[in-house]
């Protein structure tokens, strides 16, 4: 993948991603948040959405979020709260070759539990498939649905979008 820069490609660089990626030991312990928000913009709802104090308070409304992974439970409340749809939860604790990824999904139809979906990386390239474990639809029209998928472990830091495989 090219590393030309987020503001040229719309895709975060590997350096930027490294800064927000939970350490492997943490990912293997259980679900934890990965906030892919790198640009100073005036926005703070993620901090207020976290009931565990894992997203630190903003001194300046333009600050980028800072996560305390020791406090994060991976509940995913912040995913639906982020206006930029930039928050994901990853979980590599399932003890097999799988992982779990939670992502925002504002499209219809919503996938159903047990359904196999196609997975895409940050450039929109298809990288594999996953099975939907849980769908939290959110309240219309305000909410952002959150979809949890089981995917091959190597996709936990790669897959960031899904598509439902149905006609229409």
């Amino acid at each position: 993948m090219s590393d030309e820069g987020l503001l040229v490609t719309g895709i975060p660089t590997s350096e930027e991603l490294a800064r927000v990626t939970p350490p492997r030991e943490r990912r293997e312990k259980g679900p934890c948040v990965m906030i892919e928000c790198f640009q100073r913009i005036p926005c703070d709802p993620c901090h207020y959405s976290c009931r565990f104090g894992a997203i630190k308070e903003f001194e300046d409304i333009n600050d980028v979020p800072e996560v305390d992974w020791d406090k994060c439970t991976g509940c995913g409340m912040c995913i639906a709260a982020c206006p930029g749809l930039a928050i994901f939860v990853v979980d590599e604790s399932t003890g097999n070759e799988e992982c779990r990824i939670a992502m925002p999904y504002e499209f219809v139809p919503l996938p159903e539990k047990g359904e196999r979906v196609r997975l895409f990386d940050r450039a929109g390239t298809e990288v594999g498939t996953g099975v939907v474990e849980r769908v939290i639809p959110g309240q219309k029209p305000q909410g952002t649905p959150v979809v949890w998928v089981r995917a091959p472990k190597e996709l936990s830091l790669v897959a960031r979008h899904l598509a439902v495989n149905r006609e229409g």
Binding site: G10, I41, G84, G124
Partner: peptide, 23 residues
């Protein structure tokens, strides 16, 4: 322009849908 005009999170949101942004 040589760089994307809007917020990076909005750009990332459409890139993962597979839409190319040609600066």
């Amino acid at each position: 322009m040589p760089v994307i005009g809007g917020y990076a999170v909005h750009a990332s949101k459409i890139r993962r849908l597979g839409i190319p942004i040609l600066t």
